[in-house]
């Protein structure tokens, strides 16, 4: 049996990739299962999906903790989560990146396959959706499933969801990625901060689970107002950049930011206002400060800015 863990973000199609892989293995006469991480998912948030393949019936109904392969759909994910966690020493990481395997930095030096799946997707599909391309790389790097089966798997799974025409393009993306995949050993240079999670015992658990305001624990804040611990800036693909000289302090971006990640300079203490900041007719400092810890890069601020003072950059 081999087990695969897919790392993606909500909306990137990690679950469909796991399903297409399982379908490909199934076509080859194996027993195969694909399943999502058992949790709530929102677009942009890191998510997991899993696949298991064996010759006979698979009885395990647990999540995968020690995968043979990890597949990473988004090149920024390894900076946030240790994708090599639990990966078997004999295992391999398949990563969407334009880097060579030897240039990739992960938590451990492991056998690594890389492909610029984003580039392939943009070229073949016209959108940066990498869930099909990465499967081509998987086939090439692991050899446990043929590219023909992967293409059939994509036709089955993607076809049912997005139609035959788009599925064919995705199969093509897998084929192109297959040809561009290289394998080597990555650098094990990334160090991840120790994961801190508040996990009280049944005895420590608050009565009825009720939580007060900003309760301090060894694992950070919990309770009302404590979601600030969740730095959603890591979801971002595009980044707003403000040219404060063009700002007219209309506050529209400040109002429209769904995250509250924009603060008006006029609301900040003087010490935090950059030198050379202009003033509006009322004498208030002109401009905004973006808190990239929380900005998800939605782009509403740039779209709504009446003076085009904000631009989205990659």
């Amino acid at each position: 049996m081999y087990e695969v863990r897919f790392h993606g973000r909500g909306g990137q199609g990690a679950v469909m990739a796991a399903q297409a892989l399982a379908d490909a293995a199934f076509i080859e006469g194996n027993y195969a299962v694909a399943f999502p991480f058992f949790g709530a998912e929102r677009r942009g948030a890191p998510v997991l999906a899993f696949a298991r393949v064996d010759k006979g019936k698979i009885y395990e109904k647990t999540q995968v903790y020690e995968p043979d392969y990890v597949v990473v759909l988004d090149d920024k994910l390894p900076l946030m989560v240790d994708v090599t966690k639990g990966l078997k020493d004999t295992g391999m990481a398949i990563i969407n990146t334009s880097l060579k395997p030897e240039e990739v930095e992960l938590g451990r030096a492991v056998k690594t396959a890389t492909v610029d799946a984003t580039g392939v997707a943009l070229e073949v599909l016209g959108t940066p959706i990498t869930n099909s391309a990465i499967l081509g790389a998987f086939a090439k790097a692991t050899g446990v499933v043929s590219i023909e089966s992967i293409k059939k798997g994509i036709m089955d799974i993607f076809g049912a969801r997005i139609g035959e025409r788009l599925a064919e393009k995705n199969a093509r993306a897998a084929e192109v990625a297959y040809e561009r995949t290289s394998v080597g050993i990555c650098k094990g240079t990334l160090i991840y901060p120790e994961e801190k999670k508040w996990l009280p015992t049944a005895q420590e658990f608050p009565t009825g689970g009720a939580l007060g305001l900003e309760v301090k624990t060894d694992a950070g804040l919990i309770g009302l107002g404590s979601f600030v611990e969740n730095k959603t800036g890591s979801w971002r693909t595009f980044m707003p950049v403000a040219d404060n000289s063009k700002c007219v302090n209309c506050k529209l971006c400040w109002f429209y930011c769904p995250e509250g990640a924009i603060e008006m300079l006029m609301n900040l203490p003087e010490s935090e206002i950059p030198a050379g900041t202009g003033t509006d007719p009322k004498g208030n400092p002109k401009g905004i400060k973006i808190d990239y810890d929380y900005c998800k890069g939605c782009g509403i601020c740039a779209n709504e800015c009446p003076t085009k003072a904000i631009t989205m950059e990659r």
């Binding site: 909500g10 909306g11 929102r42 677009r43 942009g44 948030a45 107002g225 979601f227 600030v228 611990e229 969740n230 730095k231 959603t232 979801w235 109002f255 429209y256 930011c257 769904p258 995250e259 509250g260 990640a261 603060e263 008006m264 609301n267 808190d291 810890d293 929380y294 998800k296 890069g297 939605c298 782009g299 509403i300």
Partner: peptide, 22 residues
């Protein structure tokens, strides 16, 4: 200035409901 509905919430990027609630 103060947000009584803080950042760090997990709404999809560009969520209209998050704009309203905040």
């Amino acid at each position: 200035k103060e947000n009584l509905f803080t950042g760090g919430h997990t709404a999809c990027p560009g969520c209209g409901a998050a704009i309203l609630v905040r």
